[in-house]
C-alpha cells in the first residue's frame, strides 16, 4: 500500500519545498515569508518521515520530529516574535522585480537539474530523482540573500539555503546521524537567535535594517 504511494509522497513533499521557495521569492511581506518558511519546515519534516518509513528507520522519524519542532515551529516563532501589527507593516522592496525574480528561479531550477543529472546522475530511486530540488533550494536561498535589502529578509534566505542543504542530505544519503542533525539544528537556531538580536540592535541604533546603508566602516 505504502509502496504505491511512496513516489507520489516524495514528489508531493519535494514539490511543496520548491513551491514554498518560489513563493518566498515572490512575496514581499516579511510575515508571509515567515509563514512560508514554517510551511517549508513542515514539508521537510514530512519528507524525512516518508523516507524514514519507507526505509524502516525509526531514527529518521525521530529526526523528522526534531526538524518539525525546530524548522517548522521554533525558527519561525523566533523570527515572528514581535507584535504582529508591526511585523505586518514590514514590506521588502527587493532589488529584483517579482517577474525577473521568478524567471531567475526557473532558470536556477533548470540549472540545478542539468548540473545534478550531468555531474552525479539522477539514479534509479525516487529520492535520487528529486535531489535537484535541494540544489535548487540552495540557489534560490542564495538569490534571496543577494536580492533582499533588510537583514531579516536576508536571514530568511539563509534559512532557505540551510533547508536546501538538509534536503540534499536527506534525498541523497538518507540523512546524517541523529546526533549530527541535532547539533546542526541547534547551531542554526543559535545563529538565527544571534542574527535576530543583531538585527534588533541595528534597528535601534540606525533606525532600520537596510544592509545597503551599512557600507562605511566605523572604528
Amino acid at each position: 500500500m505504502f509502496e504505491t504511494f511512496y513516489p507520489q509522497l516524495i514528489g508531493f513533499c519535494t514539490g511543496a519545498l520548491l513551491l514554498t521557495s518560489a513563493l518566498m521569492v515572490w512575496r514581499h511581506s516579511l510575515l508571509a515569508s515567515i509563514r512560508l518558511l514554517a510551511l517549508q519546515g513542515v514539508a521537510l519534516a514530512a519528507l524525512v518521515a516518508v523516507i524514514g518509513i519507507a526505509e524502516g528507520e525509526s531514527e529518521l522519524v525521530l529526526v523528522s520530529l526534531l526538524i518539525l519542532s525546530v524548522k517548522g515551529v521554533g525558527l519561525p516563532w523566533v523570527l515572528a516574535h514581535q507584535s504582529k501589527a508591526s511585523i505586518k507593516q514590514i514590506q521588502e522592496s527587493p532589488r529584483l522585480n517579482p517577474t525577473a525574480a521568478l524567471l531567475a528561479v526557473t532558470l536556477l531550477t533548470i540549472l540545478s537539474y542539468v548540473v545534478v543529472s550531468r555531474v552525479f546522475g539522477l539514479g534509479d530511486s525516487e529520492t535520487g530523482h528529486a535531489a535537484p530540488i535541494g540544489l535548487a533550494m540552495v540557489l534560490i536561498g542564495f538569490l534571496l540573500l543577494i536580492s533582499r535589502r533588510r537583514a531579516r529578509s536576508q536571514l530568511i534566505g539563509f534559512l532557505l539555503l540551510d533547508n536546501g542543504i538538509a534536503t540534499i542530505a536527506f534525498l541523497t544519503s538518507g540523512g546524517v546521524p541523529i546526533l549530527l542533525e541535532f547539533a546542526v539544528s541547534l547551531d542554526v537556531l543559535l545563529v538565527v537567535l544571534i542574527l535576530h538580536v543583531f538585527a534588533g540592535r541595528m534597528r535601534t541604533k540606525f533606525g532600520g535594517t537596510a544592509v545597503d546603508q551599512l557600507r562605511e566602516l566605523h572604528d
Binding site: L111, R118, I146
Partner: peptide
C-alpha cells in the same frame, strides 16, 4: 569592492553559478 554586502554576496553567487555551469 565598495563595501556593499550585496555586491560581495553576488560575487560569490555568480562564482558558484559559473562553477556549476562549468562542471556540467
Amino acid at each position: 569592492a565598495n563595501g556593499s554586502i550585496h555586491r560581495y554576496l553576488s560575487y560569490s553567487f555568480v562564482a558558484l553559478l559559473i562553477v556549476l555551469i562549468v562542471v556540467s
